[in-house]
Design a protein around this nucleic acid. Sequence first.
DNA 1: CGCATAACCGGCGATACTGCCGGTTTTATG
DNA 2: CATAAAACCGGCAGTATCGCCGGTTATGCG
Lengths: 223, 223
Amino acid sequence: MNADNLQDRMLSAIMPEHNAEPPARWQQRKSAQTRQRLVEAGVDCLVEGGYSGLTTAAVAERCAVSRGAMHHHFPTRLELVAAVVEHVFYQRMRRFLDDYFAALKERGEELMIEIACEAHWQSVQTREYAAYLELLVAARSDAELAALFQPAARQYDEVWTREMIEAFPQWERHWQDLKLASDFTQVLHMGLLLHRTPFADEARREQVRQMGNRVVRGLYDRK
Amino acid sequence: MNADNLQDRMLSAIMPEHNAEPPARWQQRKSAQTRQRLVEAGVDCLVEGGYSGLTTAAVAERCAVSRGAMHHHFPTRLELVAAVVEHVFYQRMRRFLDDYFAALKERGEELMIEIACEAHWQSVQTREYAAYLELLVAARSDAELAALFQPAARQYDEVWTREMIEAFPQWERHWQDLKLASDFTQVLHMGLLLHRTPFADEARREQVRQMGNRVVRGLYDRK
DNA sequence: CGCATAACCGGCGATACTGCCGGTTTTATG
DNA sequence: CATAAAACCGGCAGTATCGCCGGTTATGCG
């Protein structure tokens, strides 16, 4: 398995179109840059004000861009949302892969399980994941958003599952267990993130997380 | 341990004031009834439209109550929200206790762990829990709501933890494990609920849930 | 029966977000 | 240099939600 190949393949599979080829022209490059800044401001608004806080005015103001320019890049709010959705999924995968392969190179393959759990937990702590969560929850009660979000989530999961099975040949024929371990970790980490409020004590979350890691390790060792 | 006593004590500890004593007067009784209907309509709006869908107009319309009457019961939107928060926490505990003690009586105490997991999973499937989730997420980015939500969540957790330790004498001195099992289940079930969208396949969620149950059972057996 | 109180009604202005438009500046091309 | 095209600007009307108010109906009490 070549780490860089896998990383590139996974990322390119869900890369937003506008990220693909940086144009040579000055104007278009600046335009793409502004667009990117707007999308990232959208992520900020999402994190700070929830889905209903993702307004065209707020995003434009945060970028020091006029509402007219905003309209030029994103004629409607929903088109902005679509760009944010793409960006968030892409960054989510990117963060995990970067962390994972960096740590793997440094600490060695025998700690693979712990490294993967740690990298995923790190990826959950990011701004982008917070934005993902806001979108996920909002999509439960907003049909328009769901129409954008669900296909993206489906594709993300598809790419993730496919490449994961190929990336961990150690699990061999037990790839159902690998998938289960991955699903379990994703579920647990999302729950942990949301229990920051109900569980005032940080140690409680940490204990649950450690137990989750042990469960995944056990799933691997018994194969 | 007397089940009914425990149930009453836990519920009364977080019961909304307006539920306490039903007044004798016709008028006041009808008023309390209308108020209750408004709160429940608030839950519906929350589930169907998220926190930003919880508007005074929407709630009033759903109850076939004028905006004036609405204003009479809840002068501001935030007061309505406060009532909904109280109601949601109360119902969440109520649903769990009802299910748990009913199943315990029917299936016997040796299945306690499985029954508790099942009852909690059931309580997570309810409308009220969906509303709880919306409030929890919205409270992350809305200071006013957080000021209402966090104390309520704190109190809920406090009552839950205290009574749980008393209700399960079997765990004896291993009450840290009991707490860990409870925290783990709460975290996992919330994550599972939210992964309904990303995991298209229902069987995957079910597998993760079953594995969670086994983990809790293991925690109990090894004590 | 009559007055006081509580419950309910519908409309007002203020604010904020959306989508759209005409006009202006900056960059590319012949 | 002139013209086209792309990027950016600021304001307008439409809509929805909010908090608030004066007025109306129903109930409780002497």
